[in-house]
């Protein structure tokens, strides 16, 4: 099977998956009591039946369910997620404006967790019975066991209120003027605490899996052979063992996209990060249906793309993955 065909198949399949996500979410919103007309009429300080009916017509809410669903899917196929009356903007625009902030947060957190996790894992794998192993285990478990928003609040109080090392909220300081690097450093300073908070949940996963697979690889025949050939311990660990141990870690990281997005919702709430999470929360409270549907759709899209990228990354790290699923 050619690689192109594999990719094509996966794309077709991803699209089917997305359609299924759309249908389920649309159905859910339809089943719920009350609708967007209620929200709008409230924002107008009350409305009479005539206005309510008018809103329902303009939203197509008077049509049978199947017609509404069909229209919606047809619109989404043209990248039109509808208009949000609540935000007075097209949903696609609204989401695309927020998406970069969330992606930045999520990717920074994942990379931080991966790097730190792998390093911790390697350290503890090389001395499985040493003190460092216990320290690593505890450190990693702390992030996993503490509620992420709680970790965030504690970090915020410690590093923003008490020692002023990092700014409190938002993604950048708009009053700063300067070139690219000035802004880069500014965003990095804002990003640090949220990314560490979000990454802390996943530290445990990556460090423990690295440790386990390292120990397995270190015990395997070909590493023993390599050692027998006279390679130094460091060479063995970093050139051979780690490379082989990485692929399960990457697989796992790929599976976490949905979990990272979930964590991001909470972290964004704590740090007023201007991403999809804060948008989602506000939309859910206001039941801004088009925006909620749009965000669920985009999140699924991000997860699917994340999975595809993981596949690609795996092929790079471990060419053996090629044919199998």
């Amino acid at each position: 099977m050619g690689i192109l065909r594999t990719i094509l198949l996966r794309v077709v399949y991803a699209i089917l998956l997305l359609v299924a996500v759309l249908v389920l979410n649309f159905l859910l919103m339809h089943l719920a009591p009350g609708d967007v007309a209620d929200t709008i009429s409230q924002s107008m300080g009350g409305a009479d039946q005539e206005i309510l009916d008018e809103i329902r017509v303009s939203y197509g809410l008077d049509q049978p369910f199947i017609v509404q669903l069909g229209r919606y899917i047809a619109n989404v196929a043209q990248f039109d997620l509808g208009y949000s009356f609540f935000y007075n903007q097209p949903v696609t625009k609204l989401i695309l404006e927020r998406l970069p902030a969330t992606l930045l947060l999520v990717i920074a957190a994942q990379i931080a967790a991966l790097i730190i996790g792998v390093v911790l894992g390697v350290i503890s794998a090389r001395k499985p019975n040493g003190l460092s192993n216990y320290v690593v285990t505890f450190l990693a478990l702390f992030g996993y066991s503490a509620p992420v928003f709680w970790t965030g609040i504690l970090l915020l109080i410690t590093f923003s209120l008490n020692v002023h090392w990092f700014p409190v909220a938002g993604m950048r300081d708009v009053t700063i003027e300067g070139g690219f690097w000035v802004h880069f450093i500014d965003v990095a300073r804002h990003l640090f605490l949220p990314a560490v908070t979000l990454g802390s949940i996943f530290l445990a996963l990556y460090s423990r899996l690295t440790r386990a697979s390292m120990m397995e690889v270190l015990g395997s025949d070909y590493v023993r052979t390599a050692k027998a050939k006279g390679l130094t311990s460091n060479q063995v660990v970093y050139k051979h063992a780690l490379k082989n141990a990485l692929s399960p870690v990457i697989t796992l990281a790929g599976l976490q996209f949905s979990a990272v997005l979930s964590g991001a919702v909470l972290v964004e709430a704590v740090f007023s990060w201007p991403g999809l999470g804060t948008l989602a929360f506000q939309s859910i409270i206001a039941r801004d249906t088009p925006t909620i549907l749009g965000i669920l759709f985009f999140s699924a899209l991000v997860v699917i793309i994340g999975n595809l990228l993981t596949d690609l990354a795996l092929r790079l790290v471990d060419p053996r993955v090629g044919g199998q699923k």
Partner: peptide
């Protein structure tokens, strides 16, 4: 399909 759903967002909804 359920893996693709954003877990917390979906539960919130």
């Amino acid at each position: 399909f359920f893996q693709v759903l954003p877990t917390l967002l979906f539960s919130m909804v």
